[in-house]
Design a protein around this nucleic acid. Structure first.
Lengths: 318, 318
DNA sequence: CTGAAAGCGCTAACAC
DNA sequence: GTGTTAGCGCTTTCAG
């Protein structure tokens, strides 16, 4: 048995003759090592758990794809958990790492595992490697990768101002998420800076879905005082908004300019093609894997924050 | 140790007094059973491996979400593997089940694991539970869930004929996939049946991406003999095609009618909203879990095929 | 009802 | 270089 193990793991430490013999036997019996038993003996499972709020969100999908790729190249397996923004499901997935099925965690979304919250409240160090991705909160001793949502919100609105818009509205994300708050903050910042009118009813909250963008835009268009530009905190909401605008017979960008957020792949095919702020989803995924790997290897990079660059993509909706 | 195990697993077989005491200890030491060790002793890992070609495809994302949900309710964990249509990565993921990290496999896509191909060639029974989802091929002794792509292709084109179109083109999927072949077959069927013109250059092959739909439509529009309707084998290609049509200043459905396939969530927000054939992605996922569960439980449902109903969703592009 | 003891299949340390 | 041995942390007999 031990020799078989060696042949599979460190073939050089076995005589070629024996190696061949064992190899034959392996082939003959169709032997595949039981990974569970291996894991029990080995210190690490070489598995990364990635937790995302929802799998059908294209931003996460893109990040995930890159995580998979990089992890795979590094010899790690990736386990994906979808929480659907439900605390209970999140905590169940966390069991995978406390029970050592996974070595560490890349966590997307704003939900926080109970175990981590508890250990933090107790002032204890994090019980296992975690990296926060696109994190809305800051967590002591925990590296994160994100973009600067305030700055990118500013960039979006500044572009609107620069192209001559004066009555700028916003369809924001749910305000319980810091990401959403930050983008809104960026919006307000620029408006204040440009000494432009800030109306309460020009900010409508959506939930990042197309339906919510459509509804929010509907409310904006019902206003007596119509905005001449709208900053949408997400591309899907922007696409919903476009539909609403088209239905009212208004033209973009002439009547209303629209800027989105994310640059998901549908943005370029919208009607008109959507100007947007690109979030580097892929880069974010890659960076997250780099961070977790460093944690695994014991590098003391805790507490670091990587801010990835956002980018203005000008298309024809502005 | 044994008692702790019992308290966690079959509390009723332990005196309440002892149970409480053990419970306290568990809480105090923050004890979490090592899942790897548990799995070593238990016959099954209660994990389902789901393999998909690409995670960012909305059809898979939707199916996956339902798989996750149902599996979760049944007490199964879901491991997701993305092959990116690469045989090597597929085979690596299959190791998860041969090495008993997963109990069985739900397989999307047309790639076939080498192990399975080998065992089939040898006339042997499948070495572990597999269900084929939206399978392009048939596999002996292996249950599958799918829709009827020929019939749904027919339904799409028949709708075009019924609404008075006479020069119907098609943007097909890659012909190396049976799914794509089937939809094309449906198209040809109806055309033949209606004794309508079938032109070689009215069928252009895409790869399901928006970019390919855009390019394919461009080629169609360059033709001397313009079609008055196009059946796209996927919604994303249809959205790409819409962009091309708009850019040429043509109107939908007046100049050209367009019908897509899938009814992914963007279809309703396209411009104009896309008429399409709905594939029940969610149902498909649920059914797949049901099938694999039955396989786990030893029900002899092998060789069954579940055909899920497709549906014509009429919107404004036709 | 509970503790002791025997493995699950493997790897690593240890002899030979 | 290779076989033997001792666990990894649990579950499951088996006694008591």
């Amino acid at each position: 048995m031990a020799t078989v193990s060696r042949v599979l793991r460190e073939p050089d430490r076995v005589t070629p003759a024996k190696r061949a013999k064992v190899g034959e036997a392996i082939a003959h019996f169709n032997y595949v090592p039981n990974a569970v038993a291996q894991q029990l003996r080995r210190p690490r499972s070489r598995t990364i758990l990635v937790i995302i709020p929802e799998i059908s969100n294209l931003f996460f999908a893109e990040a995930l794809k890159n995580i998979e790729n990089v992890a795979h190249d590094l010899g790690y397996r990736v386990l994906i958990g979808e929480t659907q923004r439900c605390q209970e499901r999140l905590d169940q997935y966390i069991d995978l790492v406390t029970s050592r099925t996974a070595d560490g965690l890349i966590l997307f979304g704003s939900l926080m595992p109970s175990v981590l919250r508890a250990s933090m409240d107790a002032g204890a160090p994090l019980p296992f490697p975690v990296v926060l991705a696109e994190a809305s909160v800051r967590w002591p001793n925990c590296p994160r990768v994100k973009i600067d949502n305030v700055l990118s919100g500013e960039m979006a609105v500044r572009h609107l101002v620069k192209t001559g818009r004066r009555r700028i509205a916003m369809i924001s994300g749910p305000q319980r998420y810091t990401v959403s708050q930050d983008r809104l903050k960026g919006y307000r910042m620029v408006l204040a800076e440009a000494a432009m009118e800030q109306r309460q009813d020009w900010v409508v909250e959506g939930d990042f879905s197309m339906a919510s963008g459509y509804a929010a835009m509907g409310r904006l268009l019902d206003l007596a005082e119509l905005p001449d530009a709208v900053f949408c905190a997400g591309d899907e909401m922007a696409i919903g908004a476009q539909t609403a605008i088209r239905e009212r017979g208004l033209r973009m960008p002439d009547d209303i300019a629209l800027i989105g957020f994310d640059d998901m792949r549908f943005a370029a095919y919208a009607s008109p093609p959507l100007t947007t702020i690109r979030q580097p989803a892929g880069e974010l995924g890659k960076a997250a894997v780099g961070l977790i790997k460093a944690l695994f290897d014991g590098d003391s990079i805790r507490e670091s924050t990587i801010i990835l660059p956002h980018e203005l993509i000008i298309r024809r909706s502005t």
